[in-house]
Amino acid sequence: MVVEDLSVRLKVYEGRPAVRGGLGKDPVNSPMIRHWCEAMGDTNPAYTGPDAIAPPTMLQVWTMGGLSGHETRAPAYDELLALLDGAGYTSVVATDCEQEYLRVLRPGDEVSFDSVIESVSDRKTTRLGTGYFVTTRTDVRVGGELAGTHRFRILKYAPRAAAPPPDPAPRRPRPVVNRDNAGFWEGVARHRLLIQRCTGCGTLRFPWLPGCNACGSPEWDTVEASGAGTVHSYVVMHHPPFPAFDPPYAVGLIELAEGVRMISNVIGVPYDKVRIGMPVRLAFVRYDEELELPVFRAEEGAPA
């Protein structure tokens, strides 16, 4: 549909009713007033007690359709919105609200309302996107007496550009591999968990480092871990969330049978069943096409 054609078709709706004979879903009532005041942080004593009035700014609230919608919306308004939806102006944002309060509303008041489409703007380009402003004017009555008027303007627009969807499958962080730890990752690739051993004093060390922190020797070789270990300590991560990790999850400090400790995931057991001293066994888990990591699976029959 060309723009001029759409504009002409939209203008036809000016002056047509948006709601005819609308009835408030609930009478003005204290619980809704209280919920509103709690949300707004409004402690005005005029809104509580036996002589309570409703906050005047709740005027529109009493006309809202809520989750179940409006049964009383006139076809013209739905047609207008459908016409805009069909032309790609699918999003909506409220831009203006002008209210006049002629009479206070009190609990028990039954609200009725009528609404008219006052105007439909020409096509406008805004920061949100391109669209049309639709202005309605609603008269709110109690027992036939005008209690307030409410002019409301929305922008029906085509989103300028939807934010890129979040990565469907965020990937774990990549390890930083350098000349000091490359041997460890080569071992992982062959499903071997290698521990550095100082050839000067025989002390085992993990994680991999260029020198021995017992004797200072830069010379080393490796021993392969048997894969047996126990949970020396652990934490359960709830927050903050990181991409690729699904909290809550347990992060364990695993003491290998050889005596060194390493940080890893504990798998095969719910996060809240991980316990200090729990026996675990090495497993290699592939997380994506290029990342495989040594983790620790709770041993069968481990006391939970």
Partner: peptide, 8 residues
């Protein structure tokens, strides 16, 4: 309150 008119 007699009237509130706002623009966002």
């Amino acid at each position: 309150l007699r009237g509130v008119a706002i623009r966002l």
